[in-house]
Design a protein around this nucleic acid. Structure first.
Lengths: 155, 155
DNA sequence: TGGTATAACATGGGAAAACATGGGAATCAA
DNA sequence: TTGATTCCCATGTTTTCCCATGTTATACCA
């Protein structure tokens, strides 16, 4: 079976004047092993940047490629939004990617950014915004705790 | 696994007096790697130009002839329209393609154009029109958000 | 165990290459 | 010839690449 790749951990890095950020080294290892590339886009539902391996989008494209849906309006809209926003972000020899103005603005990132692992994907946040978001999520999860199953909460 | 070819990102380029536009460099890379060519045609459902690799139309054609009962008369008609309109658009040594008067008129493009990635396809818009269209799509998609899957919207 | 050497990493800055774009000469067609 | 199309060169800008430095983490040894 193929090795699985999970983006994990939370890492704070600086963003320099050119918009460059070091990709966490764990993430870089994943990219190298998977022989794919990092793709980033503006999250549809939060003020943050979302990233994943290009493989994930490739899967999406293949599903839509079916000529039965060649003329579907709804899929048309969806592909415009996703692929129109997404872009490859290869890292240089020192491990940095260069985030575009558009992404930085959407996530309100200026001089530092937090990488948050999410399994197959990861997010990049403005540090203060992430702090608030994490609080919100923790509160939310605790509220719904009784309904959580199979995630090691039995005892 | 095959290397992935995805048209992505949104790029604004100028159209000069001769009708020349630089094809975004990412797109050029795809064309070179795929050893195919760019094909453009008037979009059937929007005031924009649509483009893809010739491979994709090739695939569409094959599926049409293989599955006689599979496709409705309506889709057959739509496909005919596309093939009747489509044409190769090779780029020169500086990476520019020359859009025809017909295409430019259909998309109301004069002195600048926006390339919008759609995965296997891409679109070329008049900048103002695209701005409105993007707004429309965002509104539309967010309205239907619960139904989105595998497109990075879980959180 | 403590301390030091070594390697990996994050970060800054400058050089080099790639890119978008304008213009003109050469080529071709009506 | 006229108009259009292709090819080539020039230029300013952006992006990418490469080297240097300080810091942190890891390995090693006494």
């Amino acid at each position: 079976m193929r090795k699985t790749f999970l983006f994990m951990d939370t890492v704070l890095n600086k963003v320099d004047a050119k918009g460059r950020v070091s990709l966490p080294s764990d993430y870089r290892a994943i990219v190298k092993e998977s022989e794919s590339e990092i793709v980033c886009y503006r999250s549809l539902c939060a003020p943050c940047i979302e990233g994943c391996l290009e493989d994930l989008l490739e899967k999406l494209a293949s599903e839509m490629e079916d000529s039965l849906d060649f003329f579907s309006q709804k899929q048309d809209d969806l592909t415009n939004l996703i692929f129109g926003d997404a872009k490859r972000y290869p890292f240089d020899s020192t491990g940095r990617i260069m985030l575009s103005e558009k992404l930085l603005k959407h996530a309100q990132i200026t001089d530092s950014a937090v990488f948050v692992g999410k399994g197959r994907k990861f997010q990049i946040w403005n540090p203060e915004n992430w702090e608030k978001e994490e609080q919100r999520i923790r509160t939310e999860v605790l509220k719904n705790r009784p309904s959580l199953k199979g995630a090691g909460n039995e005892s």
